[in-house]
Amino acid sequence: MTHTPRHIVVMGVSGNGKSTIGAALAADLGAVFLEGDAFHSETNVAKMSAGTPLTDEDRWPWLDALAAEVEARDAAGEGTVLACSALRRSYRDRLRARVPGLYFVLLSASYETILTRMQARQHFMPPALLRSQVDTLETLAPDEAGAVVDASVSPEQVLSASLAALRTN
């Protein structure tokens, strides 16, 4: 028998649809949607807006704040869907250390597809940082609970594939 995970992280590089798919998943599952970008410090946002990639030292407090929020929601009996890049295994490990049982949905599309999307939107993350994110991304390892979902198709198709992955985990 399978079960839908209580806490889900929709992950991947900027511009791949984390917020759109995360919000839709949360609505479908009756969970709370958490926008990871909302937890960045003003310093982090300013750094990214200026085209400077974040360092691990920049990310640790952000990841800790995200984990604390998921922990609080869990304590309140709520499920969550978190939109968070979680690009490196070490970042996912840091989240899992505080929230065991996290399930990761890695949205994946070609560099060109994501760049086109980034160029068409208003966001503090400039398209110039996409290459650094792609270069940083460590795909899910076989021992990590999660699935890779093709994000090059319509949002409805991505949502459907994400739900299917969650329900057959």
Rank of each mutant, 00 (worst) to 15 (best):
D143V: 09
R94D: 07
V134S: 09
A164T: 15
M48W: 02
R121K: 11
S14N: 13
A50M: 10
Q122D: 15
H7E: 01
W60L: 10
A164R: 15
A38Y: 02
R121W: 05
L54C: 01
A151H: 07
E69Y: 01
L129D: 03
D93K: 07
D56W: 02
E57K: 08
L66I: 06
T20S: 13
T168L: 14
Q122E: 15
K47P: 02
W62V: 04
Q119L: 15
N44K: 00
I8K: 03
R96L: 08
R92N: 04
H40P: 08
A67T: 06
R121A: 07
R6V: 00
A50P: 05
E156K: 10
A145H: 10
P53D: 04
R121D: 08
L130M: 11
V99H: 03
L166Y: 04
A65F: 02
L82E: 06
P61E: 13
N16M: 14
A26D: 01
R92V: 00
A27Q: 15
A120C: 00
D58L: 05
P127Q: 03
T55M: 09
S108L: 14
T116Q: 15
S154E: 14
V9K: 00
L63W: 05
L137V: 11
L129P: 00
D135N: 10
T139P: 15
A97K: 12
V13G: 01
E69M: 03
Y111G: 09
A26G: 06
V13R: 02
Q119V: 13
V70D: 00
A161P: 08
R59E: 05
R98S: 05
H40T: 10
C84K: 02
S108P: 06
D74T: 14
H123E: 11
E78F: 00
R89T: 13
A97C: 05
V13E: 06
M48R: 07
A24F: 01
S85C: 14
L166G: 05
M11Y: 06
P142C: 14
I21L: 11
R121E: 10
R121Q: 12
T80H: 03
G146F: 01
G77Y: 01
F33G: 03
D28V: 05
D143Q: 14
L107Q: 08
S108K: 15
V149W: 05
R98M: 07
R121Y: 03
L34M: 08
T4D: 01
E112G: 12
S90T: 12
A50D: 11
P142N: 13
L63A: 03
L107C: 12
S154C: 10
M125Y: 04
A65T: 10
T113S: 15
S49E: 11
Q122R: 15
M11V: 08
P126L: 07
T4H: 01
R167V: 11
D135M: 02
A128Y: 03
G36H: 03
I21C: 09
E69P: 03
